[in-house]
């Protein structure tokens, strides 16, 4: 159980660092561990090894998640990151990450365009990583 807890805490920290440039609040780590125990009481070996490899090698989980989602592969990574997003979205310090507070059309359009370009790059990178590490 202690090992499991350490692994889940590392997961939370790794995923969080990919998306948010701030320290991960303690209560979110606690809840991430508890939520994973509820949502994934038993993870199949393949999924567990995939997540362990991503965390241990500091791989780009965003890219791998996109590749797996588009290829309709394992949903475990998507769900784990989704849990983290739920847990941070309900905290006020993350409000601006989810809700735009600075109105502006050009700025928004440029960011949307950038997001699409970034997605293309992440998709290519993700497909390579999925192939390289045999994540299915």
């Amino acid at each position: 159980m202690a090992d499991d807890r350490t692994a889940l805490e590392s997961e939370a920290r790794h995923f969080h660092a990919l998306f948010f440039r701030r320290p991960l609040p303690g209560p979110v780590v606690e809840r991430y561990v508890a939520a994973n125990r509820l949502c994934f009481p038993v993870l199949d070996r393949k999924a567990r090894e995939m997540v362990e490899t991503i965390v241990a090698r500091r791989l780009d989980a965003e890219a791998i998640e996109l590749a797996l989602r588009l290829r309709k592969g394992s949903r475990v990574l998507t769900r784990k990151i989704q849990i983290l997003f739920y847990l941070v979205e309900v905290r006020s310090e993350y409000y601006a990450c989810f809700i735009n507070q600075v109105p502006g059309w050009w700025r928004a359009v440029l960011r949307l365009f950038g997001a699409v370009v970034r997605s293309g790059w992440k998709c290519a990178k993700g497909l390579y990583l999925v192939w390289r590490y045999d994540f299915v």
Binding site: E62, E65, R69, F85, Y86, A115
Partner: peptide, 26 residues
Amino acid sequence: PLRSDVLFQFPLSIWANLTWARYLSP
């Protein structure tokens, strides 16, 4: 709904979906 309810239904990367949700919702 919360953004996390719908973020993962769009065909872009998570960060890109979040950006789209933030600027496209209005």
